[in-house]
Amino acid sequence: MKIGISYLFRVIVVFLLLGPVTPAIAGKTSTSLAVSPYFTSHMILQRDRIVPVFGTATTGTLVTATYTVGSFTVSRTDYAEADGKWRVDLPPLSATTEAGTLVVSGGGKTFTFADVLVGEVWVLSGQSNINLPLWQCTGGAAAVADAGRYPSIRLYMTKLSGVGTSGTWLVSSPANSQYWSGVGFFFARALQQDMMDPVPVGLIQVAKNGSLIADWTTFGGNRGRYYVGNIIPIQPMAIRGVIWYQGETEADPYAYYRMLPGLIGNWRADWKQGSFPFYIVQLPPISGRDYYAVIRDAQVSTIDEVNNIEMAGIIDIDTVPSTEIHQPNKEPVGERLA
């Protein structure tokens, strides 16, 4: 068969305009689908709220998220946006201690997360007192030995916190829980014990020893290095609330009067989950740190100024020695928060 010169000319023009046929045009697809690192096996999803599942992928990738527990299955889909981010919202789920499965797929890739429970999810943030590991707390040895009795308490440790295994959800056990926030563990245990029908409790520990409140917010023009690098990536994960234990090393305690309400407003606005509970731990009286009285007053002032705030008062808990800012008796702190 002869091919005319004019036909070849047209083919060449089309080739130059459109370029060579790509694998995608030929029917093969590729994607860079990834799920947020806060989604792993053994995780806990927040009950009774829309559950965003999110990550990144090639623009236009259709992403499907499916949660299955027993005979119940729910599935939703959405597309990756132009910025490469995707978000699929699962409808509100009921609490369950039965292990479920979360499957995320798109563009030929599939991620499967097993042993997923549904319950209450709390973020633990601040500085060294929220990071103080369970094994260092008063009564910590007994609590660690008993940790295996609470398999529906789970914790995700961020690398920022710098203790224990990070980057995955862990089930409460002596080997795992010894490195968890003592305040967090005692809080979760008390929360379950206070429930007539206990539900799973998930903790996300994201704190930094010695950090200032300005590190945790972009309010007032702050750069908020830990907020930008470690809190924003968690958003928009569904949570019940936040526990905040911070203020021990502030250079300007009087700034706390505006910084704490500003931080809370900043977190709530960016999280877009309404005025979720924000629990703060009152600083104790420490010998040689008279400015703690200013921080305590600012904490009380914030309760009066901002809605849905609670504070665990701990000034009556003995501090030994009196100069120790990391008092180890964290069990009553966690119990009062619950």
Rank of each mutant, 00 (worst) to 15 (best):
I3N: 04
S6Q: 15
R10F: 07
V13T: 11
V21I: 15
G27S: 14
K28C: 05
K28H: 13
S30M: 13
L33M: 10
A34Y: 03
V35P: 08
V35Y: 09
S36K: 06
S36D: 14
P37F: 00
P37D: 10
T40V: 01
M43Y: 13
P52H: 14
V53C: 04
A65I: 06
Y67N: 03
S71Q: 10
T73E: 14
R76A: 14
Y79T: 15
A80C: 06
A82H: 06
A82Q: 11
V88W: 00
V88K: 00
L90K: 09
L90E: 06
A95K: 04
L102K: 07
L102T: 04
F111N: 04
F113V: 02
D115A: 08
V116G: 01
G119D: 08
V121S: 04
V121N: 05
I130A: 04
P133G: 02
L134S: 06
L134P: 08
G139F: 03
A142T: 12
A142G: 04
A143D: 13
V144W: 14
A147Q: 10
Y150F: 13
P151Q: 09
L155V: 13
Y156K: 03
M157G: 05
L160F: 01
S161K: 02
G162I: 02
L170I: 05
W180D: 04
S181F: 08
S181T: 10
G184D: 10
F185A: 10
F187N: 02
F187A: 00
Q193I: 02
M196D: 12
D197Q: 09
I204D: 03
Q205P: 03
Q205M: 12
K208C: 14
L212T: 09
T217R: 11
R225F: 10
Y227H: 12
N230T: 05
I232Q: 14
P233V: 08
R240S: 10
Y245S: 01
D252G: 02
P253A: 02
Y256C: 03
Y257I: 01
R258F: 13
M259Q: 15
L260A: 09
R268H: 01
A269W: 00
P277T: 01
Q282W: 00
S287H: 05
R289L: 12
D290P: 06
Y292H: 11
M311S: 10
M311I: 13
I314L: 07
H326A: 05
H326F: 05
G334A: 13
A338N: 12
A338W: 13
